[in-house]
């Protein structure tokens, strides 16, 4: 699929923006953590869209946030998705 851009996002309603970002983020997160991808994506979607766009373009940024999210999830003792 073509890259997601800020202008594409801006043209969509707010919740659709999160949907678009989630659809792009999920496969990348799933490759890292298949069992927790849904929860991690849900957490990351609470971040500002501009930062999410940056994460899509910067694997280092994404990995950093994913690591943070996992630490928080473990602190909340979230069970793995079956």
């Amino acid at each position: 699929p073509e890259p997601l851009t800020a202008s594409m996002l801006a043209a969509a309603p707010l919740m659709d923006q999160k949907q678009l970002l989630g659809e792009r983020l999920y496969p990348m997160i799933h490759a890292l953590h298949p069992n927790l991808a849904g929860k991690i994506t849900g957490m990351l979607l609470e971040i500002d869209n501009s930062e999410l766009l940056h994460m899509l373009e910067s694997p280092e940024s994404l990995h950093s946030k994913v690591d943070e999210a996992i630490a928080v999830l473990q602190a909340h003792q979230v069970k793995e998705c079956s």
Partner: peptide, 26 residues
């Protein structure tokens, strides 16, 4: 919400409309 919702965070599923926190805290 009492701030200790054990269902947090909401889970994103590809292809399913994302409702964010509305999923768990109506």
């Amino acid at each position: 919400s009492n701030g200790t919702n054990i269902n947090w965070p909401p889970e994103f599923c590809p292809g399913v409309p994302w409702k964010g926190l509305q999923n768990i805290d109506p």
